[in-house]
Simulated assay, not measured.
Amino acid sequence: MRLVLAAAVSIPLLLAAGPGGAGPVEPGFVPGVEDLPLMPGLMAPANAAVVFDQPEGRIVESAAQGDVSAAAITAFYAQTLPQLGWRPAGNDRWAREGERLEITATRDGMGSRAETVVHFILRPQ
């Protein structure tokens, strides 16, 4: 009985982790950008970031998704980013200390399975 119960608990957790056991990153920060908060309600897969360090600065492309509206995402980052030294630099664009950040949110899927996918692109200015 204990073996069946253990399997019933373990199998869904393993399946949720995805290939290679790499599950979603816990809420906190956008993968690849240690000082950019991830909005509550968004989850990022462990392999969601591509990071390049260059003499000119870092380039990071990352993604997250969740059942959050694009308007709520825009409002969250409009309130949060200025507190971290970012200043508005156009639609969905921010600038800070030689870096620029672009945040785009699009709805993906249909019906009850639709989620908002958020892309974060950080580049040197």
Score class of each variant (00 low, 15 high):
Ala75Met: 07
Ala63Gln: 13
Ala70Val: 02
Val30Ala: 06
Trp94Arg: 01
Pro40Trp: 10
Asp67Pro: 05
Gly111Asn: 06
Arg107Asn: 09
Met39Ile: 10
Pro40Ser: 00
Asp108Val: 11
Met39Ala: 09
Gln125Trp: 11
Gly21Pro: 10
Thr116Ser: 00
Asp53Leu: 11
Glu99Val: 13
Ile103Tyr: 01
Asp53Glu: 09
Ala75Ser: 07
Ala105Tyr: 03
Glu34Tyr: 04
Pro45Gln: 12
Gln79Leu: 13
Ala8Met: 09
Trp86Lys: 01
Ile103Gln: 06
Val117Cys: 04
Ile121Val: 15
Pro12Gly: 07
Arg100His: 14
Ala17Cys: 08
Met43Asp: 12
Val60Ser: 12
Val50Ala: 15
Gly66Asn: 02
Arg100Asp: 11
Val68Ser: 01
Val4Tyr: 12
Ala17Pro: 15
Arg93His: 07
Pro82Lys: 02
Met110Lys: 05
Arg87Glu: 10
Gly32Lys: 04
Ile11Val: 15
Ser69Glu: 01
Ile11His: 14
Val30Phe: 02
Pro19Cys: 04
Gly90Trp: 02
Pro124His: 07
Ala17Val: 12
Ile103Leu: 06
Met43Asn: 11
Ser112Asp: 03
Leu15Asn: 05
Leu5Gln: 11
Val50Arg: 14
Gly57Glu: 04
Gln79Ile: 09
Gly98His: 05
Pro12Leu: 09
Met39Trp: 11
Ser69Trp: 00
Leu38Glu: 01
Gln54His: 13
Val4Phe: 11
Pro88Leu: 02
Ala75Ile: 01
Asn47Cys: 14
Ile121Lys: 15
Asp67Ile: 01
Leu122Gln: 06
Ser10Thr: 14
Glu34Asn: 15
Val9Phe: 10
Gly109Arg: 00
Ala64His: 06
Ser112Glu: 08
Pro37Leu: 05
Pro31His: 03
Ser10Val: 13
Ala16Leu: 14
Ala72Thr: 07
Glu26Phe: 03
Leu15Ala: 10
Leu5His: 14
Phe120Glu: 00
Asp67Lys: 05
Ala105Phe: 03
Tyr77Thr: 00
Leu101His: 09
Ile59Thr: 06
Ala89Tyr: 05
Glu56Leu: 12
Pro31Phe: 03
Val25Gly: 10
